[in-house]
Design a binder for these strands. Structure first.
Length: 1048
RNA sequence: GGGCCAUUAGCUCAGUUGGUUAGAGCACGGUCCUGAUAAGGCCGGGGUCGAUGGUUCGAGUCCAUCAUGGCCCA
């Protein structure tokens, strides 16, 4: 006997029971242990950042990971799944900052780095707990008892080892580079972080005049003679960041382009002729024309004469015109203001031209009172070429700039006022454009030349690209598209952060020896290496490698015996997560075997934003260390967005709590919905309405098929026999049995193929289609076989077939909806097979029996469905109920083959459309054209077939229709009276209509059999019976039923 | 400004190498069926397949340009 299945299913209760079962029996561990010795399948868990509670948009990738890992396990692979938690970095710091109401680095330091980091640690663990709870409830099987956590000393030590490897190969350097700098957080952002924060913003749009200075040498003779005029002449440049103007050291022109000198208000202005119109100077008189290249070398007066740039040793000077191929003829004036300290292009061209770097802004974003001049061209060249890290000490000079002490965006106005008062502002407007903001704190980012530590990833650019060629991407266009492009445009990885909570950068610097340009560094690659340093101090017990403790550790300089102290930076948390193939095992300090066994990963899966995040950091570190990729297959998912298509984010407040969904609908529902409805890399709108539809359409259909089976199987005491060669009774299996078996095996084959190509969405969609066929065709067409009273071979065949379908489905479904799959398996299979594996998740994934796949049968049944559908339409067109039997249907098909196929399935079609005979005509022989005009027939057609139903009603047909009407009412009454499905009854009826009486007599046996009536009694309705009045064939009939054996 | 992806019914999505009348589910209206079903069937309204050109006997599908949206990069 199977456990009784209630059609009113409570999924929540079911899932909690199964979670308990898994936990108590350790099924997850068993699913891994029992596969030991099988082929190894390496999976890397991308560690979620523990800076907040998981949202429903975090769930998607976890479901994909789980589906694939469960599937591989069932295919016999050994698939350990180590959990991981990304606990470091700015996101965690910001979470803590806001909870402690700290708003700047100064406040954090005042508060105390030790206390601050302690909060970070606690915060991380708090969220780990939440993630663990959600992961477990979701049914995402992950080894959370042995996770890798990036804050562990062992993890940090592995990161140190990696950095040391790179250091020894001169792949780490420090240099000035322009980085997107957040003035509030006080740190550089990586390019992937910058990408998170582009926004439309209203900014100044100003045209500034730079006065030509021909007293300085330089420029072509042509240009000099053209420009020598007594009228004051200005170069016109355009910018949206006035605050960078004091840092100007050059103007760039397009060497090939034509420039014009135009007269405007008693002065001459120089700009590109192509942009005259854009500046609104079409009508102005053109005095001269000159090619950009001829202007190169000509000097102009600095906007701020009082700035004393003292670097100059060579003949090249600042404040001159340079040529640049980046100069746009699309916007601006064709003359680009260059501030090497505040723009990537500016910095790059400054390096080539030997321009000075001038800082007029502090790191906190305020206009400085001290002018800071950066490095010399000589040292710049040294940085570019050096294999050894270089550090430079900038000079500081007193200065009084407009807006001094104000934040740059506020100082814009002071600067513009100042320029205006000096007649140097040509025009000032506002413009709307995109500008990057800090993705966390929303402060405008400043492109700022800073000293930062870099990983020279460009040194392995070719290897990054060739390694990518070996990776399978799903969807595949990511490989050459988004990820490939990213690698092609690879730049060195700025991997240091001037923050507190992170893996400390393991570089120590001597305080005493070396020059500013040539300091002495030590990169320490392990704890032991650190402890082995001479004259060590500051080591704490227990050891905590975090700041501020690690900052206290000092040791003797091997060169001069001075003290060596750690540099202040911490490492980018993307480095942490990218280090996980190594660091999750504390490799190379231990677990060499595990590392090697799990490298490279067979499978990883995250959302598309990780292209520049984790996917990149994994690939970069692996290529740098081992010169090969560390993952073979990667699924790249789209983002889950809200019902309006907006990205879910804490700041927008549109994050959907997965608990709310799970507690309402269950984890399986969420799982199936997300798997079945995602579309590749596209955004996926999350809607509870669609989720509810999934439940109705998929779960309830499946569940009711399951309930139907158990209900009748228990009535008939069906015991599934293991299908051996001799117990098989092929003769008893009907065409429909063979058909659903064929469909089932085809499904198994297709689902396997789809899962092997990492496509759970298509796999689940296929299963959904099968369940629809199973329920709405196989079961519906075969109901009578289950109902009938004889326990014959035919009935057994039906039970065996349906049972087989459901048990196979439980395994097919197991990777996707592990709870309901377990329920089906336990009740339908394990309960009757004492030797069965303990859980569906310990079984093998089904293998398709190719011999049972019969493509012809599949298409034949498809044809029968199609014809039935047309037949029903024909009935509806004529307005004749399906319950009313009709004499015959004519069916037009195209080929003899179809005719033959339909003939073999005619009984089913006749029942579906309730006709006595089916006449099939094939186009090849009997059939002429589509019969549009047939008297006494109702005709429908589609492109290929037509069906004509005879609409003539004989007294016999009407009588039979009435009998079916009676049966239907009695069945409904049984249900209304809440009788058990097996209860036998006695039926009473009263009517004045002779036709009905006659029908009841004629069809007595049929009515009795259908309604389990022992007697049909014409007469008074007894007390206590369930009575109803109905109209049948325009006459009234009173019916009553009561149980025949009230005792049972 | 550049790259990738998308755009098909009110909504969510299918649509295989170009080939009869572009489909499904939901929602809506009507109707039928039902002792597994919270379901299901049938009919109906609802589509210039984002736009414009091109290739072709034939384009939702291939090409080009543009528009809109998302992501990524400047």
């Amino acid at each position: 006997m199977f456990r009784e299945v209630n059609t009113k299913i409570n999924f929540l209760q079911l899932e909690e029971d199964i979670l308990r079962f898994w936990k108590e029996q350790g099924i997850f561990n068993k699913s891994i242990e029992t596969r030991e010795g099988g082929p190894h399948y390496a999976f890397y868990e991308g560690p979620p950042t523990t800076n907040g509670s998981p949202g429903v948009h975090h769930v998607l990738s976890r479901l994909y990971k789980d589906a694939v890992c469960r599937y591989k396990t069932m295919r016999g692979y050994h698939v350990p799944r180590k959990a991981g938690w990304d606990t470091h970095g700015l996101p965690v710091e910001l979470e803590v900052e806001s909870s402690l109401a700290l708003t700047s680095k100064a406040q954090i330091e005042e508060y105390g780095v030790a206390r601050f980091n302690d909060h970070c640690r606690q915060s991380a663990f708090k969220y780990i707990k939440e993630w663990e709870a959600m992961t477990e409830r979701l049914g995402y099987w992950l080894d959370m008892e042995h996770p890798y956590i990036t804050l562990d000393n062992s993890y940090i030590e592995s990161c140190w080892w990696i950095a040391k490897q790179l250091w020894d190969r001169s792949l780490i350097y420090q240099g000035y580079k322009v980085t997107p700098h957040c003035p509030r957080c006080g740190t550089s952002l990586s390019s992937h972080e910058v990408a998170l924060g582009y926004e439309e913003v209203d900014d100044p749009s100003v045209w500034v005049k730079f006065k030509l200075d021909l007293t300085q040498p330089g420029g072509s003779e042509t240009a000099r003679s053209l420009l020598s005029s007594t009228v004051p002449t200005y170069l016109l440049a355009w910018t949206t960041t006035p605050w960078t103007l004091p840092g100007n050291t050059a103007l760039a022109v397009a060497p090939e382009a034509e420039y014009v000198v135009v007269e405007s208000d008693k002065e001459y202005l120089i700009l590109a002729s192509a942009l005259l119109g854009a500046v609104g100077m079409d009508g102005c008189k053109v005095v001269e024309k000159v090619i950009g290249g001829d202007l190169v070398g000509v000097h102009y007066e600095p906007l701020y004469n009082n700035i004393d740039i003292r670097y100059v040793k060579e003949d090249k000077r600042a404040y001159r015109i340079i040529g640049g191929d980046f100069v746009s003829m699309e916007e601006g004036t064709g003359i680009v203001h260059i501030a090497p300290a505040y723009g990537e292009i500016d910095f790059e061209i400054g390096g080539k031209e030997g321009l000075p770097l001038v800082h007029t802004v502090e790191l906190n974003g305020t206009v400085t009172t001290n002018l800071v001049t950066g490095f010399t061209p000589k040292s710049r060249e040294y940085i570019q070429k050096s294999e050894v890290p270089v550090i430079l000490e900038p000079a500081r000079l007193k200065l009084d700039l407009p807006g001094a002490g104000k934040f740059v965006k506020d100082a814009d106005k002071d600067i513009l006022d100042d320029l205006k008062s000096r007649g140097l502002l040509f025009r000032s407007e506002r413009i709307t454009h995109t500008y990057p903001f800090c993705w966390r704190c929303e402060a405008p980012l400043l492109y700022y030349a800073k000293q930062t530590w870099y990983i020279r990833s460009t040194a392995v650019k070719e290897e990054l690209i060739s390694g990518n060629a070996e990776i399978n991407w799903y969807p595949d266009y990511i490989k050459h598209g988004r990820f490939g492009d990213w690698l092609e445009n690879n730049v060195d990885w700025a991997f240091s952060r001037e923050r507190y909570w992170g893996t400390p950068l393991n570089i120590w610097r001597c305080e005493a020896c070396g020059t500013p340009e040539f300091p002495t560094y030590e990169c320490v690659g392990s704890v032991d290496e650190l402890k082995a340093q001479s004259n060590l101090s500051g080591l704490t017990t227990p050891l905590d490698l975090h700041r501020p403790y690690v900052d206290e550790i000092a040791f003797a300089c091997p060169k001069c015996d001075g003290r060596m102290r750690r540099v202040p930076e911490v490492i980018d948390c993307w480095f942490d997560s990218g280090a996980m193939p190594v660091a999750q095992w504390h490799y190379p300090f231990e677990n060499e075997d595990k590392f090697k066994q799990n490298f490279p990963a067979d499978f990883i899966c995250e959302a598309v934003d990780q292209t520049r995040g984790w996917f990149y950091s994994l690939h970069a570190i692996s290529t740098l260390l081992f010169n090969r990729p560390c993952f073979k297959n990667v699924i790249c998912l789209g983002h889950v967005v809200d019902a309006q298509g907006e990205k879910m984010s804490k700041s927008k407040g549109n994050v959907i709590d997965p608990w709310a969904v799970i507690n309402n609908y269950g984890a399986d529902a969420l799982r199936w919905y997300m798997l079945v409805s995602t579309t590749g890399e596209d955004n996926h709108r999350f809607s509870t309405k669609m989720l509810e539809e999934t439940i109705r359409k998929f779960f309830l259909t499946l569940w009711n098929t399951y309930a139907f089976f158990t209900l009748y199987a228990n009535i008939d005491c069906f015991v599934p026999q293991p299908l051996t060669a001799d117990s098989d009774q092929p003769k008893a299996f009907t065409e429909l049995d063979n058909w659903i078996s064929s469909e089932l095996n085809r499904l198994v084959s297709e689902v396997s193929k789809l899962m092997d190509s990492y496509n759970p969405t298509s796999a689940t969609r296929r299963i959904e289609g099968f369940i629809d066929n199973l329920s709405n065709w196989y079961v519906r067409r075969n109901r009578r076989r289950f109902w009938k009273s004889e326990n014959d071979a035919d009935k057994l065949a039906a039970y065996t077939t349906l049972h087989q379908c459901l048990v196979t489905l439980s395994k097919l479904l197991a990777p996707f909806v592990p709870f309901i799959a377990e329920e089906l398996y336990q009740n339908l299979f394990r309960s009757v097979n004492p030797e069965a594996r303990e859980s569906v998740h310990l079984t093998d994934f089904p293998i398709a029996d190719e011999t049972k796949i019969n493509d012809k049968l599949n298409s034949d049944v498809g044809l029968a469905m199609k014809i039935s559908s047309l037949g029903r339409a024909a009935r509806a067109k004529a307005g004749i109920k399906v319950r009313q039997p009709l004499d015959k249907a004519l069916v037009g098909v195209e080929t003899e083959g179809e005719k033959k196929a339909l003939k073999s399935l005619a009984t089913g079609v006749m029942e579906e459309i309730n006709v006595k005979q089916l006449v099939i005509l094939s186009k090849a022989k009997e059939q002429g054209e589509f019969p549009s005009n047939m008297p006494d027939y109702s005709v429908t057609n589609d492109a290929r077939y037509w069906v004509a139903i005879s609409t003539e009603l004989t007294p016999e047909l009407i009588a039979e229709g009435v009998s079916r009407e009676l049966v239907r009412h009695l069945q409904n009454m049984r249900r209304n009276a809440k009788f058990d499905i097996t209860d036998h009854i006695i039926t009473y009826y009263q009517t004045k209509e002779p036709l009905i009486k006659q029908v009841i007599n004629t069809f007595a046996d049929y009515i009795k059999q259908e309604t389990l009536s022992q007697d049909l009694i014409d007469g008074l309705l007894p007390d206590g019976a369930h009575g109803e009045k109905h109209r049948i064939s325009n006459s009234e009939v009173s019916l009553a039923i009561k149980k025949a054996n009230p005792k049972s």
